[in-house]
Design a protein around this nucleic acid. Structure first.
Lengths: 117, 117
DNA sequence: ACAAGTATATCGCTTGGTGATATATTGGAT
DNA sequence: ATCCAATATATCACCAAGCGATATACTTGT
């Protein structure tokens, strides 16, 4: 792990749910509009990314080398995650997993207090 | 689940890591300064909440009824989570857990691509 | 011809986290 | 006795991020 990637990780973490889902989408090549549909669908309507959100994030992540344009046909700009992006994504996935594990642990300890109220 | 609580949940979710860890801390009574130490310690130095962050969040969460002051001695204001707060906390824990599960699933499908690079 | 869907882009607002700063008290070290 | 660090809470102002609103333009079906 080079320090360049290390900097990206510390700059991007913790990541918003929006950015995280977007980056997860780009483990397969997709264009902006496709991401909007994908996220809406996969989250069963819970998370809705508007165009301003998607294109703002896409621009920033491309600048930072987390994603790249792999194809450009008609008006479609097809993005895909880079190797650096994958490492950031993995780091964020690890963080979220750890957070969930910790929360579960704390809530399990205090579960009696809930049911007794 | 009354609609009052439902509104709190949709207003607060998704929650920042800061707010989430703070709320998790208050499953046991603690004062602001104690929360700062607790989070720093439990996250092994990764997450550091400054005073402005802690007291800002405490104020807002008390206003919204997620937490309450249970004791006030000297300069210490001891807070604890309310029943409504617990439901918000549980909802956020569920969201994070689901997010981690989804991320794991997506990354497992594409794991070969990483190792081959 | 028109409406709806596809596709990208930008502006400006609001909110939230946070560094900086202020204030006051307490405990330990010199 | 004095001084510094730690404890404890509070406020202000800045910046970044998400996002609603809006604009533009092409395509497809009716």
């Amino acid at each position: 792990m080079d320090e360049m990637t290390q900097k990206l990780i510390s700059d991007y973490l913790p990541m918003s749910e929006q950015s995280f889902l977007l980056l997860l989408c780009l483990t397969e090549p997709r264009h902006g509009y496709g991401i909007m549909q994908m996220v809406l669908e996969q989250s069963r309507g819970r998370v809705s990314l508007g165009p301003s959100t998607v294109y703002t994030i896409l621009y920033k992540m491309e600048q930072d080398g987390l994603i790249e344009v792999v194809k450009e046909v008609d008006r479609r700009k097809v993005y895909s995650i880079t190797y650096a992006g994958r490492q950031v994504l993995q780091a964020e996935a690890d963080r979220v997993t750890e957070l969930a594990r910790y929360a579960h642990q704390v809530l399990a300890q205090n579960s009696t207090a809930v049911t007794l109220l």
